Simulated assay, not measured.
Amino acid sequence: MSGLPGRTEVLVVGAGPVGLAVAVSLAGHGREVTVVDKQAAGANTSRASVVHPRTLEMLERIGVAKRLTELGRPVEQFNIADGDRTLVPVRFDKLPTDYPFVLMIPQSTTEQVLLERLEELGGTVHRPSTATDVRQTSDGAEVTLESGEVIQAQYVVAADGMNSRIRDLAGLGFTGGDDLLPLNFTLADVRVESGLPEDEVLLYFSRPGMLVAAPLPDGSFRLVAEVDDAPEHPDVAYAQKLLNARGPQETTARVTEVVWGSRFRIHERVADRYRDRRIVLAGDAAHTHSPAGGQGMNLGLRDAVTLGDALAEALTTGNESDLDAYAINNRAEAVRVVSLAHRLTRLATAPSVLRPARNAGLHLLAHVPAFRRTLAEQLSALGHR
């Protein structure tokens, strides 16, 4: 496989947004980084679609926040609603940040911006290159690829997703097993004729069930709903039925096209440890949880920037204290975020008999400014600065 070095300072396994962000950070520090990914090409579906204020603050440090903001759709308000009635308005425009909004942007665009930044800094992604084994040495680690090639690195970053092979080979897995919530979700990016606001994210807590409707930069909307039996490929009729039952009632949002759709179940896991000597975890390899609140990719991107700085410090000075702090502090943040996402999911998917009482309680709480402010700080991650 041409172009692959036999030796590098840092080998990043996985070229999703987290792996790319680690690589961009290291390249920006002037460190030698090699990125391998088993996919022949980057993802072209939207998947994660929101970047939070705290994440944008950190992405400033690697030179991509401005470009992402230009390409995305800033949204200043998040509303929990029951049909046409607002239960809890959550505003981001008063938050103490240079990014007082959530940025709606498809994951594919985020990855493209990060890749372009990496290439600007002289880096590249080697595809397809599947890592099949890893062995730690006295001064680094050796990763064997499916091709038989071996790359020696001073550090290896496992950013290869929820089913990370590097993590499992390094013994950094989950002794508690996999906590799979018994919930099924459907996801559809749709085009609609009127009926949905383009300047706010809506979380409908309706009697038939929850529904998220979030605007995307191309004018489409991301719909996410918890359902009993999610179709593999939701069609227009299915998306329309969800909107009619769970969305706005006074107006009809007519679905004209399903751009992309999928289904998923929720895993809740945090790795026991984020680091074993020269192998370090980041992103979904380290933690996975409910998409409630759009926290997953954001948590991973914050991992990436912190880890890039820590690795650069270790390579430059030999001091690994920042790496130790990353392994402890970012794992602690993941535990907090998984707990928050779990609570939001349980609230959103409460049994139907409890939903009227839940909505009444939320409507009362919404009159308490501290509740609204705390919710905005938690969702934006500014409360974890």
Rank of each mutant, 00 (worst) to 15 (best):
M1T: 13
G3E: 09
R7P: 02
E9D: 15
V10F: 01
L11H: 05
L20K: 05
L20H: 05
L20I: 06
V24K: 08
G28Q: 13
H29P: 03
H29C: 06
G30F: 05
R31T: 08
V33N: 08
V35G: 07
V35T: 09
V36P: 09
V36Q: 09
Q39Y: 12
A40S: 14
A40K: 13
A40T: 08
A48Y: 05
S49T: 08
V50K: 01
V50H: 01
V51C: 07
P53C: 14
R54Q: 15
R54E: 15
M58T: 13
L59C: 10
R61G: 11
G63K: 09
A65F: 08
T69S: 11
E70A: 11
L71H: 05
L71P: 02
R73P: 00
P74H: 09
E76C: 13
N79A: 14
N79E: 15
G83V: 11
G83Q: 08
P89R: 03
F92W: 07
K94G: 11
T97K: 07
T97V: 12
F101Q: 06
F101T: 02
F101M: 11
V102F: 15
L103N: 02
Q107C: 05
Q112V: 03
Q112E: 14
L118R: 04
E119D: 11
L121N: 11
T130Q: 14
T132A: 10
D133A: 15
S138V: 11
G140I: 08
G140V: 07
Q154H: 11
S164R: 01
I166N: 00
G171S: 09
L183Q: 05
L187Y: 03
L187Q: 00
L196M: 06
D199Q: 05
L203A: 12
F205S: 11
M210L: 14
A213H: 05
A214Y: 04
A214L: 05
L216H: 01
F221G: 02
L223R: 02
L223T: 03
D229L: 09
P231L: 10
Y238S: 10
A239N: 08
L242T: 03
L242E: 06
N244D: 15
A245R: 14
R246N: 12
Q249F: 13
T251C: 12
R265Y: 00
R269S: 04
D272N: 13
Y274M: 12
D276H: 12
R277M: 02
R278W: 01
I279R: 00
V280T: 02
D284L: 03
A285S: 13
A285K: 01
T288I: 15
H289L: 07
H289K: 07
A292E: 00
G293L: 06
G296A: 08
L299V: 09
L301T: 04
R302N: 12
R302S: 08
L307C: 10
T317M: 08
G318P: 06
N330G: 12
R331G: 04
A341D: 00
T345N: 04
R346D: 05
R346E: 12
L347C: 05
V353Q: 12
N359K: 09
A360C: 08
A366Q: 03
P369N: 06
R373D: 11
L375P: 02
Q378A: 13
L379G: 04
L382A: 05
L382D: 07
